[in-house]
Every structure is written in structure tokens, then in C-alpha cells.
């Protein structure tokens, strides 16, 4: 009995630093955010209770709805492109080619560069205003016009952000897929060859791709969350522009800070509900998958 109490005492002692930090800097702020979302609060002065006014404000704010549409647009562009390129890279570097370790490092190393650095660099390479950068001039030299993504064309602005994000993140998807590919049994490939799978495309379509489904699912979940959270790429490359066209939900929230913390917190609450829903979907899909296989 004394022995168990002794262990319990040390147990509490060992978790107490983590417990205090998680309680104060993760759990408390969430409660506080819900509280602020029900108040009108500038940075100065006392908060006044306004009920759901901040949420009503969001519901009536076109920019807020556009930010949700923009977030979905960004997801649709960014998630398939990094996963697709990552899969392609993984299949290539999984073959026994010359210097494949070197190729892996090359595709992976952009992950070490910060989003700030990569965002500035890509903005400069693709710049159209005030002067034209490398790629617009390259296109101009063959008589084509580069899209005016910095001034008028928000759709293309999102494409530029996606290009940067894909360059930086494809290597991450490649590594996860490589782990998945190495889990595929060689005997299955041979058995499939006997069953009439002839071309590389057939092997990919009927063997590799279905077997990689759990990996793809894991990647979709993680990249969706990272993309929804993406603040730096947008802040650095477009600041939500042109004309609010790349303002995602996270950027909208940042934009409302610090002058209208109540509205920012209401937007944060919506974002939290969204992240919770995503996690729930992930959880449900995983448990269904487990019984399916």
C-alpha cells in the first residue's frame, strides 16, 4: 500500500509540469476564447457581454463566407497536388536507380526551409508587380502573358501559393508513401503478374494504389489539417489579397486581431468546430476501415 502511494506521488510529481502547462496554455485559452466570443472587446477597455452578436456578425459578413469558400478552394488545390506529386516521387525513388538516396534528399530538403523564406522567394520568382520576376519574363520571352496574380487574379494567386506549398511539402508526402510502398509484399506483385497484370500502369492501378489506401487516407487527413491551418504562406505571399481573394478562415481570424478580439474569437470557435468535425470524420472513417479490411 505504501509502495503504491509512493508510486502515485511520483506519478503526480512527474506529470505536474506538463499538466500545469497544458491546463494554463492549452485548455484555459480554449475556454477563454469561447468566453471572449460572446463579448464585445477591443484591446483597450472592459469587455461587454453581447451574447451571440459576434456570430451574427460573421453570418452577415460576406468576407467571412468568402473566407470559408477560399479555404475550401485552397484545400482542393493544395491537398491533391502535394499528395499526387509525393506519390509520384515516392514511386520513382523506390526503384533501384542510381543515387536514389541523393534524389530523396533533394526532394525532401525544401521541408527544412521556413514558409517565410520559401514564400518570399516564390513571390519574387513569380512577381508581376511592381516589376516582373523570373517566370513572368520567361513567359514574356515566348510571347505569353503571366497571370496578374498580385493585382487582379485571385484564383491564380491561390495557384502561386499552392506551387510554393507543393514544393515545400511534396517531400513529406514522399517519405510517408515510401514507408507505405516498402510495406507492400514482393510476392503480391509476382502473384499479380501471374494473374495477368502486365503493364506498370496496371500494377499501379490494381495493386499499388489500393494497397496504399491507408497511407493515402493518413496523408489526406494530415495535409487537410496542415492546409486549413496554413497562415504563413498566405500572410507572406498575398496578405489575403488581391481584394480578399486568398483570405482563408485562418487569415480572416488574424485580420480581425487585435482590434476586434470578440469577432476573431468567434471565427476561432468556428475554426475549432471545423477541426473537431475533421477529426471526428477521420476517427469514424478509420474505425470503419478497420472492420472493412
Amino acid at each position: 500500500m505504501r509502495e503504491r502511494l509512493h508510486a502515485a506521488g511520483w506519478g503526480y510529481a512527474f506529470i505536474s509540469p506538463a499538466l500545469i502547462l497544458v491546463a494554463v496554455f492549452l485548455v484555459l485559452p480554449i475556454g477563454f476564447m469561447l468566453y471572449i466570443s460572446l463579448h464585445k472587446w477591443g484591446l483597450l477597455g472592459a469587455p461587454t457581454f453581447v451574447g451571440l452578436d459576434n456570430f451574427v456578425y460573421l453570418a452577415n459578413d460576406d468576407r467571412f463566407w468568402r473566407s470559408i469558400v477560399n479555404t475550401i478552394f485552397y484545400l482542393v488545390l493544395a491537398v491533391p497536388s502535394q499528395i499526387g506529386l509525393g506519390l509520384f516521387l515516392a514511386i520513382l525513388v523506390n526503384k533501384k536507380v542510381l543515387a536514389r538516396e541523393g534524389f530523396r534528399t533533394i526532394f525532401f530538403i525544401p521541408l527544412a526551409i521556413s514558409f517565410v523564406a520559401a514564400g518570399i522567394l516564390f513571390t519574387w520568382m513569380f512577381a508581376t508587380t511592381p516589376i516582373e520576376g523570373f517566370f513572368p519574363r520567361l513567359l514574356a520571352s515566348v510571347g505569353l502573358e503571366f497571370p496578374r496574380w498580385q493585382t487582379t487574379d485571385a484564383g491564380w494567386a491561390m495557384v502561386m501559393i499552392t506551387l510554393m506549398n507543393t514544393w515545400k511539402s511534396a517531400g513529406y508526402c514522399m517519405i510517408v508513401y515510401l514507408a507505405g510502398l516498402q510495406g507492400i509484399n514482393k510476392e503480391w506483385t509476382e502473384a499479380a503478374a501471374i494473374d495477368g497484370v502486365r503493364t506498370q500502369w496496371q500494377e499501379f492501378r490494381f495493386l499499388t494504389w489500393p494497397l496504399l489506401a491507408p497511407t493515402t487516407f493518413l496523408l489526406v487527413v494530415t495535409t487537410v489539417i496542415f492546409t486549413v491551418r496554413g497562415f504563413e504562406p498566405i500572410f507572406v505571399m498575398t496578405q489575403g489579397g488581391p481584394a480578399g481573394g486568398t483570405t482563408t478562415l485562418v487569415y480572416y481570424l488574424f485580420d480581425k486581431f487585435p482590434d476586434t478580439v470578440g469577432i476573431a474569437s468567434a471565427a476561432g470557435t468556428v475554426l475549432l468546430v471545423g477541426v473537431l468535425a475533421l477529426t471526428l470524420v477521420q476517427f469514424l472513417a478509420q474505425s470503419r476501415r478497420a472492420t472493412y479490411y
Partner: peptide, 19 residues
Amino acid sequence: FLATLIIPFELLFVPLYLM
């Protein structure tokens, strides 16, 4: 602890800043 894993800093910074 595991549940707090999903809280993104991108929304946490608002209440944290005030604290």
C-alpha cells in the same frame, strides 16, 4: 492531453495574447 493535440495555435493565439 491527447484531445488537446488537435487545437491549432492559429486560433489559440488570440486568447493567449490577451492572457
